[in-house]
C-alpha cells in the first residue's frame, strides 16, 4: 500500500491562512491503515487547525469528510455536493488522491507527504518494498527487490559498503543484497548470482515519463462485448 506522513501543522496552517471554510477530506484506504490520513487523523488535524486559527484571531470553520478512496471518481462523486461548501479542501489522501480531487474542485491542498509503497512490518512500522519499476525482477532475486532495498539499486550484488548484513547508509537498514544472498542460499540457488544482470531499461519506470495502464486487449474486448450486448437490447 501507499505510505504517507502527516505534514507539519505550521506548513498546513501557512497555506490555509486565507481560507475560512476548510474541508478536511480523509481517505479510507492506504493512509487510514498507515495512520496518516484516515478519519481519526483528520479529526485530530481539524481540532488542531481550529485551535490554532482561533488563537491567531482568524477563526476558521473546519469540517471533516470521510471518503472511501480519493483515487476513484465514484467515491469523490458521493461527497461532491457536501464538499462544495468549502473554499479550500485539505486532502489527507496520498498524492494521487490530492491530484484527483484537484481535477474536480478549485482549491485542493495536500495534508500529507506521500512517501513510498510499503508493507506493515510491525505495529506502527512500515518499510519500503517496491518502487514500481515496471519490470519486476523478483523472480531472480529470491523475492527481495534490489531496486528498492539496495540503497544503490545494484543489480549484481552488494557494494563495498555492506557490513555485517547492514547497508552502509545506516546500521539500522538491512543490506538488500545480504537478504537476497541469504534467501537464495536457503533455496539452494546461489548459482543464480553468478549471472551478470544486464543494464536495466528504465523506460518502464518513471524515467520514461508519466505512465498509464490501459486494460489489456482481452479485458477491453469483454467490455466491448458487454457494451454491444447492451446496445442490441
Amino acid at each position: 500500500m501507499i505510505i504517507a506522513d502527516q505534514k507539519p501543522l505550521d506548513e498546513v496552517l501557512g497555506y490555509l491562512k486565507d481560507y475560512k471554510n476548510i474541508a478536511i477530506a480523509a481517505c479510507g484506504t492506504c493512509v487510514t491503515i498507515c495512520l496518516a490520513g484516515g478519519l481519526a487523523e483528520a479529526e485530530n488535524l481539524a481540532e488542531a487547525l481550529r485551535i490554532a486559527r482561533g488563537a491567531s484571531g482568524r477563526p476558521a470553520s473546519v469540517r471533516v469528510f470521510s471518503l472511501k478512496r480519493q483515487c476513484d471518481a465514484e467515491f469523490i462523486e458521493e461527497a461532491d455536493l457536501e464538499l462544495r461548501w468549502a473554499d479550500a479542501i485539505l486532502s489527507t489522501a496520498c498524492g494521487v488522491g490530492v491530484q484527483f480531487m484537484a481535477e474536480r474542485f478549485q482549491v485542493v491542498l495536500p495534508g500529507l507527504n506521500t512517501t513510498f509503497f510499503g508493507a506493515s512490518r510491525d505495529a506502527g512500522l512500515w518499510t519500503e518494498m517496491c518502487q514500481g519499476c515496471g519490470n519486476c525482477v523478483l523472480e531472480r532475486t529470491g523475492g527481495i527487490c534490489p531496486v528498492t532495498r539496495c540503497s544503490k539499486s545494484n543489480f549484481n550484488g552488494p557494494c563495498g559498503g555492506s557490513s555485517k548484513g547492514k547497508c552502509e547508509i545506516d546500521s539500522e537498514t538491512d543490506c538488500g543484497w545480504q537478504l537476497i544472498y541469504e534467501k537464495l542460499k536457503s533455496l539452494g540457488k546461489l548459482e543464480r548470482l553468478y549471472e551478470i544482470q544486464e543494464i536495466k531499461d528504465w523506460r518502464s519506470a518513471r524515467d520514461g515519463g508519466p505512465r498509464k495502464r490501459v486494460a489489456p486487449l482481452s479485458c477491453a474486448d469483454e467490455l466491448a462485448v458487454e457494451q454491444n450486448a447492451v446496445d442490441w437490447t
Binding site: 539499486s153 543489480f155 557494494c159 544486464e198 543494464i199
Partner: peptide, 9 residues
C-alpha cells in the same frame, strides 16, 4: 541518487 547502472555493468 542516480545509480542508473551498477559497477559490474
Amino acid at each position: 541518487n542516480v545509480y542508473d547502472i551498477d559497477s559490474i555493468q
